[in-house]
């Protein structure tokens, strides 16, 4: 589904190299986890894949469903199914959550040449998903993420993800700020989206989330590249022994 080859990216006008020859392949239907110490380049990877300004790709390539992902605008990547659950979801004052999401969904449908979703269908879907995620209807009328707690913002990311039904999902530290109950709700939502034609990349510090969302592969990212990989049990080993062995 996604093939990352020798990805090298810098910030601060090339003064600092964050990703340094990263190779990674996530086939459709698989969930891969990326773990690693602070500053390894985990969040940078998520931003480079989604096209945020300020990150310069100086080498390497990313092939997504046979296309050159890096050549696309952020909104085109989104329309083609790339979704990032942000580590720190943004507050959008003045734009009600439902308006925001309906605009996003219809923009994606339009970009794919599909018909927009009608208001009643949209509402029906939103209500059902909100209820699964234990999101109160009143939150959907409020401006997106404004005044929400850290946990509520994370739940709202999953809500958006379930509404937009992306193909390739990147989750950046989704577990931070969540209590155990919220973590279970979020994990149930994510697990419900697992399917043979969907790929996921889960970025996390801790193994805790991986108890709930069991990955197919676990990779260690250190100093901008993948330095070790293993199966789900490998995450438990990492949790116990730390990242020292893989430090640059």
């Amino acid at each position: 589904m996604i093939k990352i080859k020798n990805l090298t990216a810098t910030v601060n006008d090339g003064q600092q190299t964050i990703l340094n020859g990263l190779d990674l392949e996530v086939p459709a239907g698989e969930v891969h986890a990326i773990m690693g110490p602070n500053g390894a380049g985990k969040s940078t990877l998520s931003y480079v894949l989604t096209g945020k300004d300020g990150y310069d790709v100086t080498d390497g390539s990313v092939e997504y469903l046979g296309e050159d992902l890096l050549a696309m605008e952020p909104e085109d990547r989104a329309s083609k199914g790339v979704f990032l659950s942000f580590q720190y979801p943004l507050e959008i004052p003045g734009v009600p959550t439902m308006t925001f999401l309906r605009t996003a969904l219809n923009a994606q449908l339009k970009s794919r040449g599909e018909d927009p979703m009608t208001a009643p269908d949209f509402l029906k879907k939103a209500r059902a998903i909100a209820s699964d995620l234990k999101i109160k209807p009143d939150m959907l009328r409020r401006p997106l993420n404004v005044g929400f707690s850290g946990g509520e913002k994370k739940r709202m990311e999953i809500f958006q993800m379930m509404m937009l039904e992306p193909k390739f999902i990147i989750m950046d530290e989704t577990d931070s700020g969540l209590d155990v109950d919220a973590l279970r709700i979020v994990a149930d939502g994510v697990n419900a989206l697992r399917s043979p034609d969907r790929g996921m990349l889960i970025i996390t510090h801790y193994q805790r989330l991986l108890d709930y969302i069991v990955p197919d592969r676990v990779h260690v990212l250190s100093a901008g590249k993948i330095v070790a990989s293993g199966d789900a049990d490998f995450a438990k080993k990492l949790e116990k022994e730390g990242y020292d062995e893989y430090a640059a």
């Binding site: 952020p74 990547r77 996003a104």
Partner: peptide, 8 residues
């Protein structure tokens, strides 16, 4: 960027 990441 957040809005564009959602397809807007």
């Amino acid at each position: 960027f957040y809005m564009r990441q959602r397809g807007i």
